[in-house]
Amino acid sequence: MTQSSETMDGPATTPQDTRRAQRLSSTSVAVIAIYGLVVAMILLSRAVSPAFGGLSQVETIFYLAAFLVFCAFGQGLVILVRGLDLSIASLITLGGVLSTALMAGSNDGLFYILPAILLACALIGVVSGIGVTFFAIPPFIMTMAVGIIVYSLCLGFTQGTPRGFPSPLLRDLMQARLLAIPAPIWLLLAFVAVGTVLQGYSAFGRKLNAVGNNPEAAYVAGLSARTLTISAYAVSAACAGLTGILLAAYANGATLRMGDDYLLPSIAAVVVGGSSILGGRGSFLGTVGGALLLTTLATILSALGIGQGWKTILEGLVILVALIVLREQVFDALQAGLRGLKKG
């Protein structure tokens, strides 16, 4: 008598299904934990200053974290497919420099110039993806080289001094309020909603996860690992360009180093948020939590007047602690301990 793969109650659960459910559970716990750390840090910040811990500080954190979230989303997709994008800083600069130079303080052509800038950035991402997939250049080397080339082009285009001003419409948007909440926060919430669906629930996101988990198995399943990987780099580059456009509107101008402060934090936000640096596992909500944690920490350290050197050391220590505490192995050990207590 042959064994059936189904029981009277429904489909049988395979070991693979069990492992997947445990991984998803660990990822969910990591996301909850990172937001818990953010809340705890905001509440504890009252010890630094009575002005901290209130709605105004939360508003500031969300406002500043928005820029990091925009570029970290694309970085997260690249990491999901076992890559790394070191060209983000230069592409942020490119987005800011082109938007201010081409708009020149006017709204004329806004609705075709900005899409053209994003398309140009995406095409640069395609170049990075092609180098990684077709020519087997390590992502670290390929994206670093692309970043150097893009920065050099920005330097030549501006002759060392970016000129022009952002569109007044964009500048007003970055300063506007809707229902007493800054417009960039509404933009952040909309971006998080779209990004969560795209990475976690769409066919595109599931395919990226499959490629990151096992490229060979994905190929056997009929997925084009090369095309998906190139798409991830294109999205990352476009997100970096968008970040540069919004940063220039926020600061009312562009600088040649405006993207430098977002390169390493974009990677840290993804990893601290529970994504695996080896690919195949990640949550955009976790990345958002990681960005909020890093921004909260930076805000508190700045209020304390700590020097940049010590500030960098403390940020690194917090990231290391978060990575240790939020490891999947830690959650597995806790779950095993809880199961042992229940049996006892």
Results as ranks from 00 to 15, higher is better:
13 T>C: 06
20 R>Q: 13
23 R>K: 00
23 R>G: 00
28 S>R: 04
30 A>M: 14
43 L>T: 07
49 S>I: 07
58 V>N: 06
61 I>P: 04
64 L>P: 00
65 A>R: 00
65 A>Q: 01
66 A>M: 11
67 F>V: 02
71 C>W: 03
71 C>Y: 04
76 G>M: 15
78 V>T: 07
80 L>E: 04
81 V>T: 12
84 L>C: 00
87 S>V: 11
93 T>C: 12
94 L>G: 03
94 L>P: 07
95 G>M: 03
95 G>R: 07
95 G>F: 06
96 G>I: 10
101 A>G: 05
102 L>V: 06
108 D>W: 14
109 G>D: 07
112 Y>I: 13
114 L>Y: 13
120 A>R: 01
126 V>M: 10
131 G>E: 00
134 F>G: 02
135 F>S: 04
138 P>F: 02
139 P>M: 09
140 F>W: 05
145 A>E: 03
146 V>H: 01
148 I>C: 03
150 V>K: 03
153 L>G: 00
154 C>D: 11
155 L>S: 05
157 F>M: 01
157 F>L: 05
170 L>E: 09
172 D>F: 01
177 R>H: 14
178 L>I: 13
180 A>R: 07
180 A>I: 01
180 A>E: 13
189 L>E: 06
196 T>L: 01
197 V>L: 15
205 G>V: 02
206 R>H: 13
207 K>I: 05
207 K>S: 12
209 N>T: 01
211 V>C: 12
211 V>S: 09
218 A>P: 08
225 A>D: 09
233 Y>F: 15
236 S>K: 00
238 A>K: 11
240 A>C: 02
241 G>T: 00
242 L>R: 07
249 A>Y: 03
256 L>S: 00
258 M>T: 01
260 D>V: 06
262 Y>K: 05
265 P>V: 02
268 A>W: 08
268 A>E: 06
276 S>N: 10
277 I>Q: 13
278 L>R: 06
280 G>L: 12
281 R>T: 02
284 F>Y: 14
287 T>P: 04
287 T>H: 10
289 G>Q: 01
290 G>D: 04
291 A>S: 10
293 L>W: 10
293 L>R: 02
300 I>N: 11
302 S>T: 12
304 L>D: 03
310 W>Q: 12
313 I>D: 13
314 L>R: 08
315 E>D: 03
315 E>G: 15
316 G>M: 15
316 G>T: 14
318 V>Q: 14
320 L>H: 06
320 L>I: 13
320 L>F: 12
323 L>P: 11
328 E>D: 12
328 E>N: 14
331 F>A: 06
339 R>N: 12
341 L>N: 06
343 K>Y: 13
343 K>L: 15
343 K>E: 15
